[in-house]
Protein backbone atom coordinates (compact mmCIF):
# COMPACT_ATOMS: atom_id res chain seq x y z
CA UNK A 1 0.00 0.00 0.00
CA UNK A 2 2.46 2.70 1.03
CA UNK A 3 4.72 1.69 -1.83
CA UNK A 4 1.94 2.12 -4.34
CA UNK A 5 0.97 5.46 -2.87
CA UNK A 6 4.55 6.65 -3.16
CA UNK A 7 4.63 5.69 -6.82
CA UNK A 8 1.51 7.73 -7.52
CA UNK A 9 3.06 10.71 -5.88
CA UNK A 10 6.04 10.42 -8.13
CA UNK A 11 4.01 10.30 -11.31
CA UNK A 12 2.03 13.42 -10.51
CA UNK A 13 5.20 15.16 -9.39
CA UNK A 14 6.74 14.48 -12.75
CA UNK A 15 3.62 15.64 -14.54
CA UNK A 16 3.49 18.81 -12.46
CA UNK A 17 7.12 19.67 -13.02
CA UNK A 18 7.49 18.61 -16.61
CA UNK A 19 5.82 21.43 -18.57
CA UNK A 20 7.84 24.11 -16.80
CA UNK A 21 11.10 22.17 -17.12
CA UNK A 22 10.41 21.37 -20.76
CA UNK A 23 9.60 24.91 -21.96
CA UNK A 24 12.24 26.54 -19.80
CA UNK A 25 14.98 24.16 -20.99
CA UNK A 26 14.03 24.02 -24.64
CA UNK A 27 13.36 27.72 -25.19
CA UNK A 28 15.72 29.39 -22.74
CA UNK A 29 18.63 27.28 -21.54
CA UNK A 30 19.43 25.24 -24.63
CA UNK A 31 19.22 28.25 -26.98
CA UNK A 32 21.74 30.12 -24.84
CA UNK A 33 24.18 27.21 -25.06
CA UNK A 34 23.37 26.53 -28.70
CA UNK A 35 24.06 30.17 -29.59
CA UNK A 36 27.52 29.70 -28.15
CA UNK A 37 27.98 26.68 -30.40
CA UNK A 38 26.75 28.65 -33.42
CA UNK A 39 29.40 31.27 -32.73
CA UNK A 40 31.89 28.72 -34.07
CA UNK A 41 30.15 28.70 -37.44
CA UNK A 42 30.03 31.04 -40.38
CA UNK A 43 27.81 31.49 -43.42
CA UNK A 44 25.73 33.95 -45.41
CA UNK A 45 22.29 32.62 -44.54
CA UNK A 46 20.10 32.88 -41.47
CA UNK A 47 21.58 29.69 -40.03
CA UNK A 48 25.37 29.56 -40.12
CA UNK A 49 26.55 26.19 -41.43
CA UNK A 50 30.28 26.24 -42.03
CA UNK A 51 32.42 25.30 -39.05
CA UNK A 52 35.23 27.81 -38.59
CA UNK A 53 36.45 27.13 -35.06
CA UNK A 54 37.38 30.27 -33.19
CA UNK A 55 37.73 32.39 -36.34
CA UNK A 56 34.79 34.59 -35.40
CA UNK A 57 36.39 35.38 -32.06
CA UNK A 58 39.76 36.04 -33.66
CA UNK A 59 38.06 38.54 -35.97
CA UNK A 60 36.04 40.04 -33.14
CA UNK A 61 39.04 40.58 -30.90
CA UNK A 62 41.75 41.48 -33.40
CA UNK A 63 40.42 42.83 -36.70
CA UNK A 64 39.09 46.14 -37.92
CA UNK A 65 36.21 47.01 -37.75
CA UNK A 66 34.95 44.18 -35.55
CA UNK A 67 37.32 44.87 -32.68
CA UNK A 68 36.72 48.61 -32.89
CA UNK A 69 32.94 48.25 -32.86
CA UNK A 70 33.05 45.88 -29.92
CA UNK A 71 35.36 48.07 -27.85
CA UNK A 72 33.20 51.04 -28.76
CA UNK A 73 30.03 49.23 -27.68
CA UNK A 74 31.71 48.08 -24.50
CA UNK A 75 32.89 51.53 -23.48
CA UNK A 76 29.52 53.06 -24.43
CA UNK A 77 27.77 50.40 -22.43
CA UNK A 78 29.91 51.04 -19.37
CA UNK A 79 29.21 54.79 -19.56
CA UNK A 80 25.53 54.13 -20.14
CA UNK A 81 25.38 51.76 -17.18
CA UNK A 82 27.21 54.26 -14.99
CA UNK A 83 24.86 57.13 -15.76
CA UNK A 84 21.73 55.04 -15.36
CA UNK A 85 22.97 53.47 -12.12
CA UNK A 86 23.86 56.81 -10.61
CA UNK A 87 20.61 58.52 -11.55
CA UNK A 88 18.36 55.63 -10.67
CA UNK A 89 20.01 54.84 -7.35
CA UNK A 90 20.47 58.37 -6.07
CA UNK A 91 17.23 59.93 -7.28
CA UNK A 92 15.35 56.70 -6.77
CA UNK A 93 16.47 56.47 -3.19
CA UNK A 94 15.72 60.07 -2.31
CA UNK A 95 12.34 60.03 -3.96
CA UNK A 96 11.57 56.84 -2.03
CA UNK A 97 12.82 58.45 1.17
CA UNK A 98 10.60 61.48 0.58
CA UNK A 99 7.46 59.55 -0.27
CA UNK A 100 7.82 57.49 2.91
CA UNK A 101 7.77 60.69 5.05
CA UNK A 102 4.52 62.27 6.15
CA UNK A 103 3.81 64.36 3.08
CA UNK A 104 0.56 65.39 1.45
CA UNK A 105 -0.15 63.33 -1.67
CA UNK A 106 2.56 60.74 -1.10
CA UNK A 107 0.31 57.97 -2.40
CA UNK A 108 -0.20 59.93 -5.62
CA UNK A 109 3.53 60.57 -6.03
CA UNK A 110 4.25 56.88 -5.53
CA UNK A 111 1.67 55.89 -8.06
CA UNK A 112 2.80 58.34 -10.73
CA UNK A 113 6.48 57.51 -10.37
CA UNK A 114 5.86 54.03 -11.77
CA UNK A 115 3.74 55.19 -14.72
CA UNK A 116 6.56 55.52 -17.32
CA UNK A 117 7.85 52.07 -16.40
CA UNK A 118 4.66 50.54 -17.74
CA UNK A 119 5.24 52.00 -21.20
CA UNK A 120 7.31 50.22 -23.79
CA UNK A 121 10.88 51.45 -24.18
CA UNK A 122 10.13 51.82 -27.85
CA UNK A 123 7.29 54.28 -27.29
CA UNK A 124 9.32 56.28 -24.79
CA UNK A 125 12.29 56.39 -27.18
CA UNK A 126 10.19 57.55 -30.12
CA UNK A 127 8.46 60.13 -27.95
CA UNK A 128 11.71 61.69 -26.75
CA UNK A 129 13.17 61.57 -30.22
CA UNK A 130 10.29 63.76 -31.36
CA UNK A 131 10.61 66.01 -28.33
CA UNK A 132 14.33 66.51 -29.03
CA UNK A 133 14.03 67.10 -32.78
CA UNK A 134 16.36 70.02 -33.58
CA UNK A 135 14.04 71.60 -36.15
CA UNK A 136 10.78 71.73 -34.18
CA UNK A 137 11.10 69.60 -31.06
CA UNK A 138 9.45 71.03 -28.00
CA UNK A 139 12.50 70.67 -25.75
CA UNK A 140 14.52 73.30 -27.57
CA UNK A 141 11.45 75.55 -27.61
CA UNK A 142 11.19 75.24 -23.84
CA UNK A 143 14.85 76.23 -23.53
CA UNK A 144 14.23 79.25 -25.76
CA UNK A 145 11.24 80.35 -23.71
CA UNK A 146 13.39 80.11 -20.58
CA UNK A 147 16.04 82.27 -22.25
CA UNK A 148 18.48 79.37 -22.40
CA UNK A 149 18.86 79.22 -26.17
CA UNK A 150 22.64 79.20 -25.82
CA UNK A 151 22.39 75.79 -24.23
CA UNK A 152 20.69 74.20 -27.21
CA UNK A 153 22.81 71.37 -28.52
CA UNK A 154 22.38 68.81 -31.27
CA UNK A 155 21.21 66.41 -28.57
CA UNK A 156 21.03 63.24 -30.60
CA UNK A 157 23.67 64.19 -33.15
CA UNK A 158 26.68 64.69 -30.98
CA UNK A 159 28.21 61.57 -29.43
CA UNK A 160 29.03 63.55 -26.31
CA UNK A 161 25.37 64.32 -25.69
CA UNK A 162 23.56 61.50 -27.52
CA UNK A 163 24.64 58.67 -25.23
CA UNK A 164 23.88 60.54 -21.99
CA UNK A 165 20.52 61.62 -23.43
CA UNK A 166 19.63 57.98 -24.09
CA UNK A 167 20.78 57.05 -20.60
CA UNK A 168 18.68 59.81 -19.06
CA UNK A 169 15.61 58.75 -21.02
CA UNK A 170 16.05 55.16 -19.83
CA UNK A 171 16.53 56.39 -16.25
CA UNK A 172 13.43 58.56 -16.56
CA UNK A 173 11.47 55.52 -17.64
CA UNK A 174 12.75 53.05 -15.05
CA UNK A 175 13.06 55.43 -12.12
CA UNK A 176 9.73 54.08 -10.93
CA UNK A 177 11.24 50.66 -10.46
CA UNK A 178 14.00 51.96 -8.19
CA UNK A 179 11.52 54.11 -6.27
CA UNK A 180 9.31 51.10 -5.78
CA UNK A 181 12.15 48.88 -4.58
CA UNK A 182 13.55 51.48 -2.20
CA UNK A 183 10.09 52.33 -0.91
CA UNK A 184 9.50 48.65 -0.21
CA UNK A 185 12.81 48.48 1.62
CA UNK A 186 12.11 51.53 3.76
CA UNK A 187 8.57 50.40 4.51
CA UNK A 188 9.91 47.05 5.65
CA UNK A 189 11.98 48.63 8.44
CA UNK A 190 10.11 47.69 11.64
CA UNK A 191 8.34 50.69 13.10
CA UNK A 192 9.68 49.98 16.61
CA UNK A 193 13.19 50.61 15.35
CA UNK A 194 12.33 53.99 13.88
CA UNK A 195 10.21 54.99 16.87
CA UNK A 196 12.90 53.98 19.33
CA UNK A 197 15.36 56.14 17.45
CA UNK A 198 13.01 59.11 17.41
CA UNK A 199 12.39 58.78 21.14
CA UNK A 200 16.16 58.80 21.61
CA UNK A 201 16.06 62.17 19.86
CA UNK A 202 17.47 61.18 16.49
CA UNK A 203 17.13 63.85 13.79
CA UNK A 204 15.73 62.85 10.37
CA UNK A 205 19.29 62.97 9.01
CA UNK A 206 20.53 60.65 11.72
CA UNK A 207 17.61 58.34 11.07
CA UNK A 208 18.54 58.32 7.39
CA UNK A 209 22.20 57.60 8.06
CA UNK A 210 22.02 55.10 10.93
CA UNK A 211 18.78 53.26 10.25
CA UNK A 212 17.54 53.58 6.70
CA UNK A 213 20.73 53.37 4.67
CA UNK A 214 22.12 50.27 6.40
CA UNK A 215 18.87 48.42 5.98
CA UNK A 216 18.48 49.15 2.29
CA UNK A 217 22.02 48.17 1.28
CA UNK A 218 20.89 44.85 -0.26
CA UNK A 219 18.33 46.77 -2.32
CA UNK A 220 21.08 48.91 -3.84
CA UNK A 221 22.54 45.61 -4.96
CA UNK A 222 19.29 44.37 -6.48
CA UNK A 223 18.55 47.64 -8.27
CA UNK A 224 22.09 47.79 -9.62
CA UNK A 225 22.21 44.22 -10.88
CA UNK A 226 18.83 44.60 -12.58
CA UNK A 227 20.11 47.75 -14.29
CA UNK A 228 23.29 45.92 -15.23
CA UNK A 229 21.50 43.02 -16.90
CA UNK A 230 19.03 45.37 -18.57
CA UNK A 231 21.65 47.79 -19.88
CA UNK A 232 24.01 45.21 -21.29
CA UNK A 233 21.18 43.77 -23.36
CA UNK A 234 19.48 47.12 -24.08
CA UNK A 235 18.38 47.45 -27.68
CA UNK A 236 14.98 49.12 -27.91
CA UNK A 237 16.11 52.58 -26.84
CA UNK A 238 18.90 52.65 -29.45
CA UNK A 239 16.53 51.37 -32.09
CA UNK A 240 13.95 54.04 -31.31
CA UNK A 241 16.19 57.05 -30.80
CA UNK A 242 19.30 56.35 -32.90
CA UNK A 243 18.18 53.60 -35.33
CA UNK A 244 20.07 50.32 -35.64
CA UNK A 245 22.98 52.35 -37.01
CA UNK A 246 23.41 53.75 -33.48
CA UNK A 247 23.68 57.33 -34.76
CA UNK A 248 25.77 59.39 -34.74
CA UNK A 249 28.39 57.08 -36.23
CA UNK A 250 27.97 54.34 -33.58
CA UNK A 251 28.16 56.97 -30.85
CA UNK A 252 25.19 55.37 -29.09
CA UNK A 253 26.02 51.78 -29.95
CA UNK A 254 25.39 49.39 -27.07
CA UNK A 255 25.93 45.64 -27.02
CA UNK A 256 22.25 45.01 -27.75
CA UNK A 257 22.24 47.14 -30.89
CA UNK A 258 25.63 45.80 -31.98
CA UNK A 259 24.29 42.26 -31.63
CA UNK A 260 21.18 43.02 -33.68
CA UNK A 261 23.05 44.85 -36.41
CA UNK A 262 25.85 42.28 -36.60
CA UNK A 263 23.46 39.34 -36.80
CA UNK A 264 20.58 40.61 -38.88
CA UNK A 265 21.71 43.52 -41.09
CA UNK A 266 23.23 43.25 -44.54
CA UNK A 267 26.88 44.30 -45.02
CA UNK A 268 25.78 47.62 -46.54
CA UNK A 269 24.09 48.48 -43.25
CA UNK A 270 26.88 47.16 -41.05
CA UNK A 271 25.93 43.48 -40.82
CA UNK A 272 28.54 40.81 -40.07
CA UNK A 273 26.61 37.56 -40.55
CA UNK A 274 24.86 35.29 -38.07
CA UNK A 275 27.99 33.49 -36.85
CA UNK A 276 29.59 36.78 -35.85
CA UNK A 277 26.28 37.79 -34.27
CA UNK A 278 26.36 34.64 -32.15
CA UNK A 279 29.93 35.45 -31.14
CA UNK A 280 28.82 38.91 -30.01
CA UNK A 281 25.98 37.40 -27.96
CA UNK A 282 28.43 34.99 -26.34
CA UNK A 283 30.65 37.89 -25.31
CA UNK A 284 27.56 39.58 -23.88
CA UNK A 285 26.77 36.46 -21.93
CA UNK A 286 30.28 36.41 -20.49
CA UNK A 287 29.91 40.04 -19.39
CA UNK A 288 26.50 39.56 -17.79
CA UNK A 289 27.67 36.34 -16.12
CA UNK A 290 30.72 38.08 -14.65
CA UNK A 291 28.60 40.93 -13.38
CA UNK A 292 26.16 38.59 -11.71
CA UNK A 293 28.98 36.64 -10.06
CA UNK A 294 30.47 39.85 -8.68
CA UNK A 295 27.06 40.83 -7.34
CA UNK A 296 26.50 37.41 -5.76
CA UNK A 297 29.91 37.61 -4.12
CA UNK A 298 29.39 41.03 -2.59
CA UNK A 299 25.71 41.05 -1.77
CA UNK A 300 24.52 37.51 -1.44
CA UNK A 301 27.23 35.25 -0.09
CA UNK A 302 28.55 37.83 2.34
CA UNK A 303 25.03 38.57 3.50
CA UNK A 304 24.42 34.92 4.20
CA UNK A 305 27.52 34.66 6.36
CA UNK A 306 26.13 37.39 8.59
CA UNK A 307 22.81 35.59 9.03
Amino acid sequence: MPGKKKKEVKLFMVLFLLPAIFIYTLFLLIPILDSMRLSLYSGQGLIPTEFVGFDNYVKLFTQFPFKDRMINAFSNNIKFFFIVTLIQNIFGFFIAFFVTRKIIGKGFFRKISFLPTTLSVLVVGFLFKLILNPAWGIFDKILVSLGLENFILPWLGNPLTALPVLAIVVSWQFMGESVLFYTAGIDAIPEEVTEAALIDGASPLQELWYIIIPSILPIIGIVTILIFIGDFTQFDIVYAMSTTQANPAFGTDLFGSLFYRAAFSTPVRGGWGMGMGAAVSTVMFAIVFTGVMVWLYFFKLKGQKND
Binding site: P134, A135, L153, P154, G157, A162, P248
Partner: peptide, 10 residues
Protein backbone atom coordinates in the same frame (compact mmCIF):
# COMPACT_ATOMS: atom_id res chain seq x y z
CA UNK B 1 22.95 74.80 -36.43
CA UNK B 2 22.42 71.37 -34.96
CA UNK B 3 22.96 69.61 -38.30
CA UNK B 4 24.60 66.75 -36.40
CA UNK B 5 21.22 65.80 -34.98
CA UNK B 6 19.12 66.44 -38.07
CA UNK B 7 17.75 63.19 -39.45
CA UNK B 8 16.71 62.46 -43.01
CA UNK B 9 13.01 63.14 -42.58
CA UNK B 10 13.69 66.38 -40.74
Amino acid sequence: KGYEALDYVS
